[in-house]
């Protein structure tokens, strides 16, 4: 198991000029970078981050798009994986933070959390590259190779859960902008706004 903060810090060294959809790693990524190319959307509707990443990667083929998804999101929308594989965006790097629980609702177990092989599902869905990591040193060592070859690539990462039991209304809000403003700022930075 890895700490998400450590994983995010290791990735940051390889970010380059990529667009980063920070997803379930958002509260950690915002400490690393907070520009118009950093896309903290919160949770618009669970299960959709992979689709958003696909759309953005297709729209911006000359920029790497990195997404930090979760296994709960993946399970909600497994059918997005064949769509991503069929479209095959070479600039899409799909990381999954697998903490085996629904952390934001109190840590209840995700169905199949101990038995599902997410990288195997991605591979069977047509991702040309899919891999799994549970140790930080192995993950860190693999990062240059992950970004050296074209995507779409699926990288499943076992992480410790960061369980939240505080009522939602009392939680610390780390996001500085609305999701709509994040998208508007991105479009402005890309010259599309």
């Amino acid at each position: 198991m890895m700490n998400t903060a450590d994983l995010i810090e290791a990735f940051a060294k390889h970010r380059g000029d990529a667009i980063v959809i920070s997803g379930r790693g958002g509260r950690h990524w915002i400490r690393q970078s907070d520009t118009a190319l950093d896309i903290p959307l919160g949770d618009p509707a669970m299960g959709g981050h992979a689709g958003f990443g696909l759309g953005l990667a297709l729209a911006q083929p000359n920029k790497r798009v990195v997404l930090f998804d979760s296994e709960g999101d993946i399970l909600m929308s497994l059918g997005q994986l064949p769509t991503i594989a069929e479209q095959a965006p070479a600039n899409f790097y799909h990381f999954v933070l697998d903490n085996e629980v629904y952390a934001t609702t109190g840590g209840q177990p995700v169905p199949g959390s101990k038995i599902v092989d997410y990288a195997g599902i991605a591979r069977s869905s047509g991702y040309p590259r899919a891999m799994s990591f549970s140790e930080l040193d192995e993950f860190t060592a693999a990062l240059p190779g992950i970004f050296a070859a074209p995507g779409p690539v699926f990288v499943s990462c076992k992480v410790y859960p960061e369980v939240e039991n505080t009522p939602i209304g009392q939680r610390v809000r780390w996001r500085k902008k609305s999701a709509a403003q994040v998208v508007a700022d991105l479009r402005g930075a890309l010259g599309a706004g």
Partner: peptide, 18 residues
Amino acid sequence: VTREGHAMSIAAGLFAGG
């Protein structure tokens, strides 16, 4: 897409990218 709901986030990503 394989389920209609997937179309919404994909369309959002396409729009975000111009």
